[in-house]
Amino acid sequence: MLRVLIIDDSQVALDLLTAILEHESDIEVVGTARDGVEGVELVERLRPDVVSMDVQMPRMDGFAATRAIMSTHPTPIVIVSGSMESPNVEKSILSLRAGALAVIGKPGAPTSPRFDRSRRTLVDTLRTMADVKVVRIRPAPLRPAAPPKVDVDHRIPGVIAIAASTGGPVALDQLLSALPDDFPAPILLVQHISTGFLDGFVAWLNDTIALKAVTAEHGQRIRPGVVYVGPEGRHLCLGSKGRLTLTDDPPLGGFRPAASALFESTGRVYGAEGVACIMSGMGCDGVDGLRAVRQAGGLVLAQSKETCVVYGMPRAAAEAGLVDHSESPQRMAARLLKLTNVNP
């Protein structure tokens, strides 16, 4: 049985989530809590396999509760938010940085036409995340460590394409926060994230990194020092050097935007001037696109196993023989600074 703890300040939500989960023959709701303080205590006492965590709660909100759990009794946590409005979304994204594995929307009323889909998303996400091996996350130091030294044998100044999924926000924070606001190359980013959370994710990036983050637009001319984030429901690609293309092509491997679409266009358009970075995430999205980068002479960087929350996408790329360097996000940042001739 999959043992789930639900933390939510709404009794209506607790009742609904409990009913949804206990309808599944392999899931047991081992406890419920009405705020973060009680939730942290129950995690310690009940040791659930996975936690469903609300964001806005009295006494201790979902972000603070996630930090407490991940620093004392690491447990897979899924943020289940009932609001797509700021500051709820930004707090949900912060919870990912604190160690939560995924953010999804809270199922609506059973009479809603989207109820079956949202119910299935909840159940599938909790099942999947319960299998992730999580580690203790201690509070970050006040001063970030200096980027490590790396040796590079060539410079590739054109464009940086990055893709991430589960565990991505933590890795992206470590990578992008080490780059200065005058970084001399544009950055294109695909982050798998639940519908409704993209604007909050972009806002969180702008609060966290020196670079400017924007939601990508069709036909947009890309500029150095800007992170262009793939929008919901469209593939982020390069149509020509210096221009973005958003497409409604079918999902690749179930994803739109997909890492493979971004990487394929990076290799096709920028050739040896393209850098592809594949970060923490489940599955194998990105592998097909990375072949185009390698074949064109571009550089492929993958997040190392020991620094990934989920070593899925980087593993698939490494096993396919497509990775030039497997390294931590901090070392990846140092390499990008070297490649673009920037002194950290």
Rank of each mutant, 00 (worst) to 15 (best):
T32S: 08
K212P: 14
A272Y: 07
L176Y: 13
D173I: 05
D49V: 14
L339E: 09
H218E: 10
T75I: 01
R291N: 04
Q303M: 03
V43Q: 03
L290D: 00
M332E: 11
A296H: 06
R234K: 12
L21T: 14
D9F: 15
L198Q: 08
S95I: 06
A98V: 03
V89A: 04
A292Q: 06
L2S: 12
E28F: 11
D151L: 14
D199C: 13
L172W: 10
K241W: 07
F63D: 11
A64V: 09
E44R: 14
M60G: 02
E306Q: 11
A164N: 06
Q174S: 02
L339K: 05
A296N: 04
V226Y: 10
M57V: 13
E217S: 13
L142Q: 09
D173G: 04
F197W: 00
R335W: 12
V226G: 14
A164K: 00
L126C: 06
V78Y: 01
A276N: 06
T307N: 05
N206A: 10
L337P: 08
A296R: 09
A292K: 04
A333K: 01
G298D: 04
R119W: 01
R136I: 00
A102S: 10
P224M: 04
A161E: 02
A210E: 08
S165W: 12
K212G: 15
M84L: 09
T32V: 12
A210V: 11
L188V: 01
A333V: 01
T340W: 02
R294H: 05
V159Q: 09
R127F: 09
K133L: 08
L198A: 11
L290C: 01
T121A: 08
M57I: 14
R67Q: 13
S165N: 06
L244Y: 03
P224F: 06
C308A: 00
M313S: 01
A292C: 00
E41G: 11
T121G: 04
R136D: 00
Q330A: 07
D153K: 01
I79Y: 02
A178I: 02
A213E: 12
P231W: 03
L42H: 00
R155A: 04
E90N: 08
I160Y: 15
R117C: 00
P180E: 04
V309S: 01
D151G: 10
R138C: 00
I222M: 11
T166M: 08
V170E: 15
V55C: 09
L5C: 14
